[in-house]
Design a protein around this nucleic acid. Structure first.
Length: 227
DNA sequence: CCGTGATCATTC
DNA sequence: GAATGATCACGG
């Protein structure tokens, strides 16, 4: 089980493919890591496990996991039909991102330019240690997907810039949404108010809706669209 | 304190 | 059941 940074996208993908079909227990064992009973108090545990198994290095820096390769790593818990159980966190929302920055310069765009998806059995009825990984694959947005993401991003950031972050909810955006991303509901950070002024509000983040990541999976694996 | 790794839990 | 809002852990 490798832990040094992969030197090429091919090497990274080859490593990832070796995890396909493997259980959480086996991968954790190879890294001498204990498996928590569930994810209630270890929500990012699987993500960290895969990072270690593949040799990711960016830590918590706001850059792609494999910076030199320009590749972002995302685990994706799915059900028996290959449909994602959860939304996918992309990055936090910052003031700088709302003031004059363009989509092409945004962290959302940068992070989603190239993603290594690691599908995983997300069935909570099954013991975490017994859940297995599916086949990973490298993905970049199609021109249509990129346009759709840009559209949502511009609508979301535009609303925040004009009306303040408290004026938006998780309902906005067809593929991309903004939701809380904080220690708790009392957490506050420097943000914008409805007048474009400075204010303290709850930290938020950009998330991809399950319908979007689900379409990526179905497209890649040639699965039928949900009726 | 902030950003990353996400899933949990309540509401719709 | 699906979706939104809330939350947990960790590194720097």
């Amino acid at each position: 089980m490798a832990a040094s940074p992969p030197l090429s996208s091919a090497e990274l993908l080859a490593r990832a493919e070796r995890l396909a079909g493997e259980s959480i227990a086996r991968i954790a064992s190879a890294l001498a890591l204990p498996v928590p009973p569930d994810l209630k108090r270890h929500k990012g545990w699987v993500g960290h496990l895969v990072e270690r198994a593949l040799g990711a290095s960016a830590g918590s820096l706001p850059v792609p996991d494999f910076q030199t390769l320009g590749i972002e790593l995302k685990t994706l818990p799915v059900d028996a039909h290959g449909y994602p159980y959860e939304s996918t966190f992309v990055c936090t929302i910052t003031i700088a991102e709302l003031l004059g920055d363009e989509w092409s310069q945004s962290r959302v765009c940068h992070k989603l330019t190239r993603v290594l998806w690691m599908p995983l059995d997300g069935d909570r009825q099954r013991a975490l240690s017994e859940r297995r990984f599916g086949s990973p694959f490298l993905w970049s947005p199609t021109p249509e997907q990129m346009e759709a993401l840009k559209f949502d991003w511009e609508e979301l950031t535009g609303r925040v810039a004009r009306y303040g972050v408290d004026a938006i909810s998780g309902h906005i955006g067809q593929h991309l949404q903004i939701r809380p991303k904080a220690k708790n509901a009392a957490a506050r950070r420097r943000g914008l108010d409805e007048d474009g002024g400075s204010a303290e509000n709850m930290p938020r983040g950009f998330y991809l809706r399950p319908s979007f990541t689900g379409s990526i999976l179905r497209s890649h694996f040639g699965l039928p669209e949900r009726s």
